[in-house]
Design a protein around this nucleic acid. Sequence first.
RNA 1: GGCAGCGUAGCUCAGUGGUAGAGCAGGGGAAUCAUAAUCCCUUGGUCGGGGGUUCAAAUCCCUCCGCUGCUACCA
Length: 518
Amino acid sequence: MAGPKTFYLTTPIYYVNDVPHIGHAYTTLACDVLARFKRLDGFDVKFLTGTDEHGQKVEKSAEKAGIAPQAFTDRVSQNFRDLVSLMNYSNDDFIRTTEPRHVASVQALWKVLEERGEIYLGAYAGWYSVRDEAFYGEDELTTTPTGKKIAPTGAECEWVEEPSYFFRLSAWQDRLIAFYEANPDFIAPASKRNEVMAFVKSGLKDLSVSRTTFKWGIPVPGNDAHIMYVWLDALANYITAVGYPNTAEGSEFAQRWPADLHMVGKDILRFHAVYWPAFLMAADLAPPKRVFAHGWWTIEGQKMSKSLGNVIAPETLVNTYGLDQTRYFLLREVPFGNDGDFSHKQMVARVNGNLANDYGNLVQRVLSMIGKNCGGVVPTPGPFTEADNALLGAAHGLLDVVRAEIDAQAFHKALDALWAVIGDGNRYVDEQAPWTLKKTDPARMATVLYVLAETIRHLAILTQSVMPDASAKILDQLALGPDARGFGTLGPAGALVAGTPLPTPQGVFPRFVEPTAE
RNA sequence: GGCAGCGUAGCUCAGUGGUAGAGCAGGGGAAUCAUAAUCCCUUGGUCGGGGGUUCAAAUCCCUCCGCUGCUACCA
């Protein structure tokens, strides 16, 4: 029998030398929400994140710390595993590029590329700055009167040639363009797609894929003097994690590859949208289905930078505003794909306005009335009026709308749609005035509160992926068990059963109160 | 420099040919179930400047001003 539909999505592997900040948290958060949503929607999901642990910088940092590179990465990669528990990520795997499974995978990929004639040994030549550890293009340099070449950074450059393996990227230009044109949704957002296509159309040069200047990396099979260029190493993590090089029928690779989505920051889009599909096609493997490049966060209107000292640790946000509040803010505040600004003022506005007042208070006022006026059980509804059916219809219609937005990674629009129904719910409470019905028509009050409870059930089930903890608390208060929280229970089929005892309601989204100055 | 995009209410943005919109902020009112949380009404814009096409332009064209991204090998 055919299993459930699969969904494989990945974050970039984070460079282990970095300290996790809001940007890392954001990328993985977006994936986490997608992964949770897809699981609730019945998919067999694999959600991968991990750390990129090779390269010259790691080698040097380890040296500076006075320990072996492996011991160094063992230590610092913990920062990113800590981020997982802090942010409540639900990844199914955490890959490290120093793991044996990955070394084997990358070397296998290399051999395939070499056998197919996609990699050749040549020489990499260019103007190199020892101080900057970087090559510069001729047009970037200025020439002094004495004929010295000076980099934009002011460092002196020398002409360097070193043997290097090259990937025949230039041969893939036309096939990449054809691929983009045949798959218009491969790169998102659309503006980024245009940039990538312009880049490819401007002409591709063969890509240097090995180095001889450092040792901390995966050796080229059959030529230990060469270490694989980090991007070939890093990108291949996505196939390692599904078992490459085992691509046999029935293998995990056969089941899950190509990946449904690679989520990346906009700075590394090119590697994922140009080099990676070229590597894969060259190895006769399918390119991923989609690469989404999201934007950057500024802090109170300023770029994040170490020198400004305004880098925000995710832990600070979680401790200050709450975990689900932070998750909500990051996805609601900015159209996904755009750059965004984090400000305390906006965060408080979201926490208090959207969460405490709109959503939290709707839940609280309804559950509280049920608790006090319906004997603490799910009330028994009578016949539905037009207004009842309008609200229920809006709730029942949410899944299709939200699913479409989530599938397009339009998290902000998905949340907009949910909040529209929250607004409908609050309006309905005021119009129906159950506190008045309590005296005039208790049976009608029961119907109104039932309709509201049903609406809240839909909202809480659909907010689970963004706010897992808070949504679980609401579902607990509706006495819905683990089996009653998937999207399959949405709609009338999974409706609340009258008479079910409910626990005493408790607030889920506290207001943010400014700490009083000492 | 080249290519692409943006500039709409105090703020964040939606609106791509047919009488200017949303949320938040501001003002007024109602209600009292609820975390003083909600609901209703409302102030506010010559849609960056100028020119053009059209019966009709925020929307199409030209031009100017301002801002942003991309223009390959640190990851």
